[in-house]
Amino acid sequence: MRRAITERIIETCIRLSGLVVILFVVLVFLFLLKDAVLLFGHYPLGQFLLGTKWLPISEPPSFGIIPLLIGSLYVTAGAIVLCVPVGVISAMFIAEVAPGPLKGILKSLVEILASIPSVVLGFIGLVWLGPFLKDLLGLRTGQCGLTGSLLLAFMALPTIISISEDALASVPKAFKEAAYGLGATRWQTLWRICLPAASSGIIAAVMLGIGRVIGETMVVMMVTGNSPVIPRSITQALRTLTATIASEMGEAVSGSEHYYALFAVGLVLFISTFLINLVADAFLRRARQ
């Protein structure tokens, strides 16, 4: 009898944990929404979404998210343009070309990269990459969008490489053997057969990489110059959505418009990464079939 009761308790806990996981996502959304909505009581949603000035402490304050959105967009686009080709090609090399031992070494190196804390990369951007780019390109400052893009591209590589590599490795052997049977070289097979067959997985990899880049905070806060104005080029100082929250929350008075505005920015981030992940998940699922 006691056995049955213990069993009942444990099974209830198991079910509850499942429920708790769902609850967390709902709660994160609801609490961001709650605090964000408090902003729109004072400040019109339209001006928030379409405003071109982010001046949280001027009088009257202005909470236009456009400069931050464009900042995030610049940095993300720059990172993706850099890391997608490099990542996918490296994944192809690791999956199909590299011989056994080299493959193992390359995979461990990618895993090592994945585990380097972002604040360390931010630090390196600050003391080395920024000044280096400044001298190399003759920029006014090394703390700019480009430095951020380069570092974020570097950070997104493990995501893109490991998921693309999985996708390439799971292409059925029969496909390749059929191609070899017809006299195709390994390169032709890789390019014409494996890459198209793994395309869903590779798209998912790219989407997850984008999600990672948009959400990254410390690197961009440390190296992109933290200037919340609409940048005219990627070599100017700018500021992303994430960096805005991280650098201003400390000074925002709890319960002020500024405080709520930062939650509204968080909500925008939440919704965009949520959508990106849904799409990535859909592609991953298709890749598995």
């Binding site: 709660l27 994160v28 959400g215 949520f274 849904l278």
Partner: peptide, 28 residues
Amino acid sequence: LFTRLIKLAVVNLSGIPSIVYGLFGLTV
């Protein structure tokens, strides 16, 4: 439905930016 919701929740928890977790931790 419950199971599908959990799986969806796991996927999305893994995608939420860490700074957003920071906001959530702050407010809750």
